[in-house]
């Protein structure tokens, strides 16, 4: 089966002649439909650059990114923003809800921007809100919600448009552990039950342990890949910790 996302030989260089920063050197991987993939790495490893390139916010200097057979590096202007609008969903660390709109309206907005028929909007919003346990906050404004609720509304907004790929950038970064757990449980349920493909960037091992598969990036290249397989979360967590401890530098670097 054709993978949803194919990243091949991706390169990104910041700066000009004087000070070149190689954020991504030569990165290749694929994500299949229905996968819940995590990307981990220390600060400065290039994981945010990677996410920016996939989400078309930034343009790579070399290599290609293909989503559902469309080469993103070939898209320009209106086609690009159209692609972003229709095929990608975003969840950010700061959840980016509009403070003047209620929870319901925040979710509905992503559909009205797409031009979805007004008749089906209410039904789809309520359905998705049910999936994420958001029935109680539909009429609340963001400032009346907890951080976790806000982030779940953002998640609902991201999946409402039925994107090919949901990109999550440190979605639990601003949440306490309980709210983080709840959000991740629901993301994982979405992935299992609805088959939503999720690509999540995080530096937190606990958050990453909810993924089915984890890619570790170090100094702009793919360093390791872990698959959860049949392991339970606890064992997977331990495995992740093992790799994470090596990310900053392994024993060869000591001494």
């Amino acid at each position: 089966m054709e993978p949803i996302l194919t990243v091949s030989h991706l390169q990104k260089v910041y700066g000009g002649k004087g000070s070149r920063t190689q954020a991504l050197s030569d990165l290749s991987f694929t994500v299949e439909e229905g996968e819940f993939t995590g990307i981990m790495g220390a600060s400065g490893s290039g994981k945010t650059t990677l996410l920016n390139c996939i989400s078309t916010i930034d343009r790579p200097t070399g290599g290609s990114i293909t989503v559902e057979g469309t080469d993103l590096t070939a898209l320009r202007g209106k086609a690009l923003s159209r692609f972003r609008r229709e095929r990608l969903g975003f969840i950010f660390q700061d959840c980016n809800l509009l403070d003047t709109l209620t929870g319901f309206e925040n979710m509905a907005l992503s559909l009205t921007i797409l031009g979805v028929s007004p008749r089906v909007i209410e039904g789809r919003v309520r359905e998705t809100a049910g999936l994420l346990g958001l029935e109680g906050v539909l009429d609340k404004y963001p400032y009346q919600m907890s951080g976790g609720e806000q982030q779940r509304v953002a998640a609902a907004r991201a999946i409402l448009t039925r994107p090919a790929l949901v990109l999550a950038d440190e979605p639990t970064g601003a949440l306490d552990s309980k709210a983080a757990g709840q959000l991740l449980r629901q993301l994982s349920a979405l992935n299992r039950e609805e088959g939503t493909t999720i690509l999540m960037v995080t530096h937190d091992a606990f958050t990453a342990s909810w993924c089915r598969r984890i890619l570790f990036i170090k100094d702009g290249v793919l360093y390791r890949e872990l698959r959860r397989g049949e392991l339970d979360r606890k064992a997977f967590f331990a495995q992740i910790l093992g790799v994470v401890s090596m990310l900053g530098g392994d024993s060869a670097d000591v001494l």
Binding site: L98, T100, L101, E105, A108, L109, L111, T112, I113, G115, P118, R119, I121, E122
Partner: peptide
């Protein structure tokens, strides 16, 4: 009038105005 309310950014504009 849902056809008007759920059209483009109408909802956003009205909410902004109201807030």
């Amino acid at each position: 009038r849902k056809g008007l309310y759920y059209k483009g950014l109408n909802m956003f504009v009205l909410r902004q105005f109201n807030s």
